[in-house]
Amino acid sequence: MNTNNLSLIKYLRDMSHQNIILTFKGTISQEVLADVGVNLRAKLGSFHIGKRIFAIFVELAQNIYHHSAQKEFSVIKGRPSGVGMLVIQEEREYFILYSGNLIENYKVEGLRERCEFINQMTSDELRNYYVQQRKRPTGGVGANIGLIDMARRSKNPLQYNIESVDDDTSFFSLSITVDKIEDEIIN
């Protein structure tokens, strides 16, 4: 027997101990995203925050497609798509949504500054920043307002970590906490 064989039951138990309700690694297709989204919202149906969580999930997934430094050719999409990880964890009083992907090293400083800039803003300032940034033309495919949108919807700071991988890339992990509404916490 191959000793490297992954013990799925152990893997599942670990996930369950950490209250992980969803995990994904790879390049997520639009169809899978929609499918996961429908299920996620059904599961979170009792939560007013279900919609916010879904919205954040979409932004995280689309950040990965467009910005991950690691690309794979997607047969379904007929073009290269970014690869990364998505995890959702449910704790008693909040949800945390995680994304992780490689980014090019030259983007690290800009990304760090943007996160810090967003994190020191009040909700009114974030609103104005969102409206103002949305008017500015972008060079790429993204809308360039995903991070601001997630900070606004979550009503919590962006928590992020950037670790150097090699001369060209770093691993960017982002976690977004969404507090449950008090009435909805089951004791």
Binding site: K51, F54, V58, E59, R134, T138, G142, I145, G146
Partner: peptide, 12 residues
């Protein structure tokens, strides 16, 4: 009922 940030740009 829902739109992403990229659609939000297109609406504008």
């Amino acid at each position: 009922s829902y739109f992403n940030t990229s659609s939000s740009r297109r609406f504008l």
